[in-house]
Design a protein around this nucleic acid. Structure first.
Length: 501
RNA sequence: CGGGAUGUAGCCUAGUUCGGCUUAGGGCGCCGCAUUUGGGAUGCGGAGAUCGGAGGUUCGAAUCCUCUCAUCCCGACCA
């Protein structure tokens, strides 16, 4: 059978991923090394992610603000672990001007007295502001978010998953107690999990990161982890309890009710354009992108089918009438997003175009449909050739239901995939076998729910042997006596082991 | 930052070993016309390349030499 994407997932998963992005026109590599150009179809997905998440942030009491792209080196140096974690991947601005180099080119001039770092994350620069903003317990909690770009100078990059510059959102909050800060950390982890499952239709596991995977400078890091279709894990969002480390570094202090000067407690949390990569790998198939309706740039692609100008008029009139009614419908409390594709291309080509772009609903409308006052509908959650004829009014009235159904089907499918590929493994040999491919391109492994004694030596050993890491310690893990999958020592609970992006 | 490789049109690529038979050939894509049109069309025609850059050897260089720039792959690192 011919697939729209070559190679298929089974043949070569990484190449398939690239081809899906290309076929859906989501993004392309830029001339600038490691950076990507996000094209309109991809960027609209990001806008829809932003819109919905932003609303969730506002609903939990957060406000948006914007802080500088440049961080003075001295700010950055204040938190030792933070420096250690990010130092190797920072872009540094050293000059402020360009001068003629005498060879027809330019050379940097105007050396800065203090070098500036292009933010890889903004804890330190936001902390500098926060220290001024926070004086009293009455100023707390301070709940701020910013939508921004950040730069991390990565060696190996992949569109959406890892690029030198990426777009994200970083929340930064200040609290008067450890308890309040921890509550915030968990609250935002919950927001991320809810967003991933409700909007991206992507089931995630909430849990705590081990020490080795912790955000540099954090006391505790929590993540949501999703399973991709190659059975690898993708960290899709993180929420950090920063304790008083950054408050100390940035001098964020307040006077308590009792009149005592106290060091504040902070959190930070973020998701990035990586979510688009997650979306692609969680749902797409060998015919291209599959988008959950809630974040799809368009819900419906309407494809008029006609032979000549006369027919065209009739078809377009019919569509115009239908569209007026579609405009009155609402899905997820928002307008229905549709596009009439009247490009001068062959019908089949257009249809495949929209399949590859992942549009949830395709409508083909030609003379036959007009005769019956019906539409010919294809759904992206079904096979490409599985199409049904529906009465126009019936279609329009059930539109929100159809979209809900697609959203839900996509989620259930991803959930089933994760269930089918998650195993409790208690035997070391079995564990090693589980994570060893029989041949090169084979998709293997999955999530191993196994016991871990808590030692970083065991974690390291597994990583060296199998390239498998502890994705997180699930929040809902029950207390259970067992033996560490690596050393056999006593363990109190199971963690998620998997290969990861 | 270590090891390997490659640069020919928007993309993929032939030619490079052994310099001349090439006005640098083909495919995809693009443009035009015709026939088509309810599942990725076909035919004909057309535009598009100073062969990564600089220098050299030669009657003659995509091809040989020197330098240079860029990119990719494999390792260490990572949302």
């Amino acid at each position: 059978m011919k697939t729209a994407i070559v190679p298929t997932r089974a043949e070569n998963y990484p190449e398939w991923y690239q081809q899906v992005i290309k076929a859906a026109d989501l993004a392309e590599n830029s001339e600038v090394r490691g950076c990507m150009v996000i094209k309109p179809w991809g960027y609209t997905i990001w806008e829809n992610i932003q819109k919905n998440l932003d609303e969730m942030f506002k609903d939990t009491g957060h406000v948006n603000a914007y802080f500088p792209l440049f961080i003075p080196k001295s700010y950055f140096e204040k938190e030792a672990e933070h420096v250690e974690g990010f130092a190797k991947e920072c872009a540094v601005v050293t000059h402020s001007r360009l001068e003629d180099d005498g060879n027809g080119g330019l050379k940097p001039a105007g050396k800065l007295t203090e070098e500036l770092i292009v933010r890889p994350t903004s804890e330190t620069i936001i902390g500098a502001s926060f220290s001024k903003w926070v004086n009293s317990y009455r100023d707390l909690p301070l709940l701020v978010n910013q939508w921004a770009n950040v730069v991390r100078w990565e060696m190996r990059t992949r569109l959406f998953l890892r690029t030198a510059e990426f777009l994200w959102q970083e929340g930064h909050t200040v609290h008067e107690s450890k308890k309040c800060a921890l509550e915030e950390t968990f609250k935002m982890l919950d927001v991320y999990a809810e967003f991933a499952e409700k909007y991206l239709a992507m089931p995630v596991i909430k849990g705590e990161k081990t020490a080795s995977e912790r955000f540099p400078g954090a006391l505790q890091t929590f993540s949501i982890e999703a399973m991709m279709q190659d059975k690898k894990a993708l960290q899709s969002g993180t929420s950090h309890f920063l304790g008083q480390n950054f408050a100390k570094a940035s001098n964020i202090k307040f006077q308590s009710k009792e009149g005592k000067e106290e060091l504040a407690w902070t959190t930070s949390w973020g998701v990035s354009t990586r979510l688009i990569g997650a979306l692609i790998m969680a749902h797409s198939d060998d015919d291209g992108l599959v988008l959950p309706p809630k974040i799809a740039p368009k819900h419906i692609a309407i494809i008029p089918i006609y032979r000549d100008d006369e027919q065209r008029k009739i078809v377009m009139n019919f569509i115009d009438e239908m569209v007026t009614k579609i405009k009155e419908q609402r899905y997820d409390e928002k307008k229905i997003r549709f596009e009439i594709d009247d490009r001068d291309l062959r019908g089949g080509e257009k249809i495949w175009n929209w399949i590859k772009k992942g549009v949830p609903i395709r409508l083909e409308i030609g003379a036959r449909d007009i005769e019956n006052n019906s539409v010919f509908m294809g759904r992206r959650d079904k096979a490409a050739k599985d199409k049904t004829s529906l009465n126009v009014d019936e279609f329009i009235n059930s539109l929100p239901n159809i979209l809900d159904e697609i959203q839900n089907n996509i989620f259930q499918k991803a959930l089933k995939f994760r269930r089918d590929n998650t195993f409790k493994i208690d035997d070391k040999a079995e564990f090693y076998k589980f994570f060893t491919a029989k041949n090169n391109n084979e998709i293997h492994g999955g999530f191993a729910n196994s016991h871990w004694c808590g030692s970083s030596a065991c974690e390291e050993k597994i990583k060296d042997d199998l390239k498998v890491t502890i994705r997180n310690i699930p929040q809902d893990a029950k207390k259970e006596d067992g033996n560490c999958i690596c050393c056999g020592n006593k363990s109190k609970k199971r963690v998620i082991f998997a290969k990861a992006y």
